[in-house]
């Protein structure tokens, strides 16, 4: 619904028409790759190998899903994934948010220092081997902790949140400070509520990131004890990649024969991606409506 103070002109209506038309086309284009995976996953495996599937399954079947659901330990993986997303996102959001907050407090002398300290890490890293050795040294191998602790503070999220906090009226925070409120209280009760939209956006980023990440899972969880849902998909996709690397023709043939069929791969993609897609609609309510901060502007 349009805010009442905006006039409805003819050119506005023409624009609306084109805008909606554009959005409908956009929806089609954006939905297509996903739709394609969906119909491939609903098509019979052997038939899929013939290619040429565009809009509808040729030989409809649910076997690919049945196969996936019966073959692997998806339930446990899903539970771990959810746990990872919840723990990872809340801790990261809280920590990166408070970090962003202290770097926007204008009279804080460590502000630039901390920002710089974090920005540098966006560009420089020691590479895989030192980080792996660190994880081993901290005894984080095969633990759940390895999922959220190394991602606790994020320089990128810090910058995004603070760019949002930039120009927020300071009057409220200052008056609270004079009343003797602690910084953490100011952050939680005054600043954070005004930043809900950006927190929602970061939550989507972080949740999707946690859900989708797989490299740390296979590298730091060699026992497979904490395998997430995404890993099941990745393993299948990695198998495909691995075949390409084989030198020995005999092994290659063997591997190619055993390769997971395209349809099962698509079914796995659907099973693994569908749950996380709903995070966005879930957080969307914080994007709409906007907030009125005029009240504190004096």
């Amino acid at each position: 619904m349009r805010a009442p103070y905006i006039k409805n002109t003819i050119s506005g209506r023409i624009f609306d028409f084109f805008n909606v038309t554009f959005m409908v086309i956009l929806m089609f284009i954006m939905l297509y790759p996903f739709w394609n995976q969906l119909i491939v996953s609903l098509n019979e495996g052997i038939d899929t190998a013939r290619g040429g599937l565009y809009f509808w399954p040729r030989k409809f079947t649910l076997d690919n899903y049945k196969y996936m659901l019966s073959e692997s330990n998806l339930g446990r993986g899903a539970a771990i994934s959810v746990l990872r997303v919840v723990v990872g996102t809340t801790t990261c959001l809280f920590c990166s948010g408070i970090l962003a907050y202290i770097t926007t407090v204008r009279w804080f002398s460590g502000r630039r220092f901390i920002r710089l300290l974090y920005i540098i890490t966006m560009y420089f890293s020691g590479g895989m081997i030192p980080f792996y050795l660190l994880i081993v040294k901290l005894r984080l191998m095969d633990t759940f902790t390895v999922y959220w602790l190394p991602g606790l503070f994020s320089a990128y999220y810090m910058l995004l949140i603070s760019s949002y906090m930039y120009n927020l009226p300071e009057a409220l925070a200052e008056s609270a400070r004079i009343d003797g409120a602690s910084e953490i209280r100011i952050y939680l009760q005054i600043v954070a509520p005004m930043c809900l939209p950006v927190f929602a956006a970061i939550a989507v980023f972080s949740a999707v990131g946690h859900w989708n990440s797989w490299f740390d899972v296979i590298l730091y969880n060699p026992s497979g004890k904490w395998d997430t849902l995404q890993v099941y998909l990745r393993k299948i996709l990695l198998d495909v990649e691995q075949v390409g690397k084989l030198v020995d023709e005999q092994k290659k043939m063997e591997a190619m024969r055993k390769l997971t069929p395209v349809s099962v791969r698509a079914a796995t993609t659907m099973i693994v991606t569908l749950p996380i897609i709903f995070t966005y609609p879930f957080f969307q309510k914080y994007f709409i409506g906007g907030i009125t901060i005029g009240a504190v502007k004096e």
């Binding site: 801790t91 809280f94 081993v136 901290l138 005894r139 984080l140 191998m141 095969d142 633990t143 759940f144 902790t145 390895v146 602790l149 409120a181 602690s182 953490i184 209280r185 939680l188 060699p222 026992s223």
Partner: peptide
């Protein structure tokens, strides 16, 4: 509110330590 922060940080620390200590089989797992 200070308490809240302390509790949170304590929890964080504990979680970290717990995550480390709970895993005694690091060497063997590989």
């Amino acid at each position: 509110m200070k308490k809240l922060l302390c509790i949170f940080l304590m929890l964080l620390l504990l979680a970290t330590l717990g995550g480390c200590g709970g895993n005694t089989a690091v060497g063997n797992s590989s």
